[in-house]
């Protein structure tokens, strides 16, 4: 299984924080986007799309169900073909 590098994690966290309008210390690897950070489906799509643009990867929309927190996003990105 591929892994995401610390640099990539930093980039991913930056993207998520920007879209969820959070400071980096307001989010943890386990805090939930929807339940803890008031994200709606539009925000989740924005995260997916922004990751695709910035990391040059393709993420299936079915993966959204795993992208509930940063840890989930790291795993999904780690599994994409790069």
């Amino acid at each position: 299984m591929a892994v995401v590098t610390p640099d990539e994690k930093q980039l991913i966290k930056g993207i998520v924080c920007d879209i969820l309008e959070l400071e980096s210390d307001e989010i943890t690897d386990d805090s939930l986007f929807v339940e803890d950070h008031d994200a709606d489906s539009m925000r989740l799509i924005e995260i997916l799309s922004s990751l695709e643009l910035n990391l040059k990867v393709t993420i299936e929309q079915s993966e959204l169900s795993r992208m509930v927190n940063l840890q989930g996003v790291y795993e999904v990105v780690g599994n994409t073909a790069r």
Partner: peptide
């Protein structure tokens, strides 16, 4: 101008 036509900024849509 994006690499793919669907590489758009979804946050702009609304």
């Amino acid at each position: 101008t994006g690499e793919r036509p669907f590489h758009v900024e979804p946050g702009l849509i609304p």
